[in-house]
Lab assay of single mutants.
Amino acid sequence: MTEYKLVVVGAGGVGKSALTIQLIQNHFVDEYDPTIEDSYRKQVVIDGETCLLDILDTAGQEEYSAMRDQYMRTGEGFLCVFAINNTKSFEDIHHYREQIKRVKDSEDVPMVLVGNKCDLPSRTVDTKQAQDLARSYGIPFIETSAKTRQGVDDAFYTLVREIRKHKEKMSKDGKKKKKKSKTKCVIM
């Protein structure tokens, strides 16, 4: 069974824990209790493949930012979460993405942009803004509501699919490099 290491990042209060708990335990946590770091595991079937999701729910508070490099190193894919009623959390996505790329030393890291709290009427981040940002990053965008469960499975499952595509691409690139290195030079 394939294991996928997913990391949920975003500013404090955007609903990272609520999304994760909704996926794992099928219930909505409405009281806000700032996370330092929590880890969850769940076995699911995605596109006919049974897999184990190892999900790291991270601290959004700035005082825990020193811990970010460590979990970013171990993560295979990242859910970059903002709240649709919090423009600052949307603007912060850029910083999370840049930090992930720096730590992973790669421009090509599996990510999904997630606009959470889409059940709320007080939207300050337009869907088109988020779609445009995701398009500019070359990553999928999904709106979710941890409260109603809308888009929750889709967000995590899409990230797994992005990781699969990335692994497939990397193995193809690896095979191309191996083929090239088999060419021999004969000096007579």
Rank of each mutant, 00 (worst) to 15 (best):
V112L: 10
G13T: 06
G60E: 01
Q70C: 09
A11N: 10
M111P: 03
Q99P: 01
G60Q: 01
L53T: 05
V45M: 13
D154E: 10
E62S: 07
R164V: 06
R41T: 09
I84Y: 13
G75Q: 08
I142V: 09
V109M: 06
K117V: 15
I139L: 14
Y40I: 00
C51T: 07
S39D: 02
R135K: 13
K177I: 12
Y64N: 15
K176C: 08
V109Q: 06
K147E: 08
E62N: 08
T127I: 07
V9D: 01
V109N: 06
Q70K: 03
L120Y: 15
K101H: 15
H27L: 15
C51M: 13
Q61Y: 07
P34Y: 02
K167C: 04
H27R: 02
V152S: 13
Q22S: 11
Q43T: 13
C118T: 13
P110I: 02
L52P: 13
V103T: 15
S65N: 03
M67L: 06
D54Q: 01
V81M: 13
H27D: 15
A11H: 08
T183D: 09
V186E: 14
D105K: 13
H94F: 14
K175V: 05
Q150T: 04
F78G: 00
Y137M: 12
A11R: 10
D119V: 08
T127S: 07
D38Y: 00
S89R: 13
F90G: 07
V14D: 15
I21D: 00
I142F: 07
M188K: 11
L79G: 00
C51D: 05
F90I: 09
E37A: 01
L19Q: 15
E168F: 05
K180T: 15
L6F: 08
G48N: 09
I187H: 11
R161M: 01
G13Y: 07
S65R: 04
A155Q: 13
I187N: 12
M72C: 04
D132V: 05
V160F: 06
K180N: 10
N26P: 09
G77N: 01
P110R: 02
L52S: 13
F156Q: 02
Y157D: 05
K88T: 14
R102K: 15
N86G: 10
F82A: 11
Q70S: 13
D119P: 08
F156P: 02
H95N: 13
E49C: 05
T35V: 00
K172S: 12
I24V: 05
